[in-house]
């Protein structure tokens, strides 16, 4: 697959897990970028073009939802699918994320099939 994936999570372990499961789901990229918080993600998006963003919601400092709003305001990822990866799965949370610009929502724990079903179609679109 062409392009770069950006994985945003305050847990380095979870970033590795997300990248591993993407690979297992045959969602492979030319390059992968990792950000440990919202500010790091913004900085990376200002200098890199990405094809997919996988983003945690519960992060210290800037939350995933606040980050989505900033990405939208600054038009840092126009047309790029953003998928939230989180333990939070209540309806209001999902709605907030979609309103803020997310295209997909994956609840932890997740499987390879969840990634195939929820991420691959976004890349094909």
């Amino acid at each position: 697959m062409q392009g770069t994936v950006l994985v945003i999570d305050d847990s380095a372990m979870m970033r590795k897990v997300v990248l591993r499961v993407l690979k297992m789901a045959d969602v492979e990229f030319e390059a992968a970028l990792e950000a440990g918080d919202g500010n790091e993600a913004i900085a990376l998006l200002r200098t890199n073009k990405v094809a997919l963003i996988m983003c945690d919601i519960n992060m210290p400092g800037m939350s995933g939802l606040e980050l989505l709003k900033q990405i939208k305001e600054e038009k840092l990822a126009a047309g790029v699918p953003i998928v939230m990866v989180t333990t939070e799965s209540s309806e209001p949370q999902v709605r907030q994320a979609i309103l803020a610009g997310a295209r997909g929502y994956i609840r932890k724990p997740f499987t390879v099939d969840h990634i195939k079903n929820n991420v691959k179609p976004l890349l094909a679109a």
């Binding site: 380095a12 372990m13 590795k16």
Partner: peptide, 27 residues
């Protein structure tokens, strides 16, 4: 360091999974 990170994430998923499954706590 990834050992503590993994344990923290495991606890986060367990806490989140339990409360998401408990009526009145999810949201």
């Amino acid at each position: 360091d990834s050992i503590n990170d993994a344990l923290g994430e495991l606890c986060n998923m367990l806490a989140g999974g339990w409360k998401n499954d408990t009526p009145g706590l999810s949201s």
